[in-house]
């Protein structure tokens, strides 16, 4: 980074630290904060979409679909989320390879599960063993995002299902009186109104999602926890920047990062709640009117 960094062994004090904190591995460490933010930004809308689908399924008139929706929304209650995070990428990976195997190698004779092995033909491997490293990493990250979206989609479905039920019944009856079909009433009346009711639950969910991001480490993604362990571990003198076990300081850094992120979200969300309850016929809206008068 700096010109004087070419010979780390000659450095002392502050300049050593400056060089240490800007070496290549630390740049990768700072980049992994970006990975966390990317995960948050992809997962949040994906989970919302899953949740919307789940909520619609849970209130569907078609019985099997309703069962599916109910099962999906209640599964997160009894089963630890970490079990899902370990299971979903693993299962999806095998599922995708199995489907590709069926499609691409129809005349493969041997069984796929041979004892403790999962064997598919080499063209069905996902990603192909010849693909470059970044494809493998992106694929792993994609599976992780999908696992997050499925778990948080179930939470979001719970919230949205409750919010849809909270919209006053009279609103839907009015829509019916105007001759709207079920579909029209749903999209034009129910969906626009439910967000105010869903907001407290969704903002709670956002905070939980932030706090779930270090679990990426369990899924084998090189995230901030991975780098904190990697960089913080004691380095002997064969490394350019030898130092004792500093993992504690790296994890303190992560703690501060997360505290800052949750605090910032809390501030933004409370501002958003304030804006959205403006003019609403709720207690928060009433309080605003009284304060203004």
């Amino acid at each position: 980074m700096f010109s004087y960094c070419s010979d780390p062994s000659s450095l002392e004090g502050f300049s050593w630290l400056a060089c240490y904190l800007t070496n290549g591995k630390h740049m990768a460490f700072y980049g992994s904060f970006g990975v966390v933010m990317v995960l948050l930004l992809i997962t949040a809308p994906a989970a919302l979409a899953f949740g919307f689908g789940g909520a619609i399924a849970a209130r569907s008139a078609f019985l099997p679909l309703r069962w599916f929706g109910k099962a999906y929304t209640s599964m997160v209650r009894g089963i630890p989320d970490i079990a899902f995070f370990l299971f979903v990428p693993f299962a999806l990976d095998q599922g995708i390879e199995w489907l590709r195997h069926k499609a691409k190698c129809p005349d493969w004779e041997e069984p796929i599960r041979q004892g403790s092995d999962f064997v598919v033909c080499s063209v069905a491997k996902m990603p192909l063993s010849s693909s470059p490293q970044w494809v493998h990493e992106t694929y792993g990250f994609f599976l992780a995002v999908l696992a997050f979206a499925i778990v948080f989609g179930a939470f979001a479905a719970n919230v949205l299902f409750g919010a849809m039920k909270a919209v006053p019944r009279a609103q839907m009856e009015t829509a019916e009186a105007y001759g709207m079909t079920d579909r029209q009433a749903f999209w034009r009346i129910l969906v626009p109104q439910m967000w105010v009711y869903a907001l407290p639950g969704l903002s709670n969910l956002w905070m939980i999602l932030i706090k779930a991001t270090p679990l990426l480490f369990l899924l084998g993604v090189e995230d901030i926890v991975y780098w904190a362990r990697e960089l913080g571990g004691a380095k002997t003198s064969i490394f350019a920047y030898p130092h004792p076990d500093w993992r504690l300081y790296y994890f303190l850094g992560l703690l501060v990062f997360y505290l800052g992120l949750t605090k910032l979200s809390e501030m933004v969300l409370s501002r958003l709640t304030y804006r959205l309850s403006h003019g609403q016929a709720t207690m928060a809206g009433d309080a605003q009117r009284k304060a203004a008068a």
């Binding site: 991001t213 679990l215 926890v225 913080g232 994890f251 303190l252 997360y258 505290l259 949750t262």
Partner: peptide, 22 residues
């Protein structure tokens, strides 16, 4: 309350373990 509710449990475990090891 802010410290323990605002940060992930996962990080708290790591932090506690590294502290105890030191």
């Amino acid at each position: 309350i802010f410290l323990f509710r605002g940060s992930p449990l996962f990080i708290q475990f790591f932090l506690a373990y590294e502290t105890f090891v030191l």
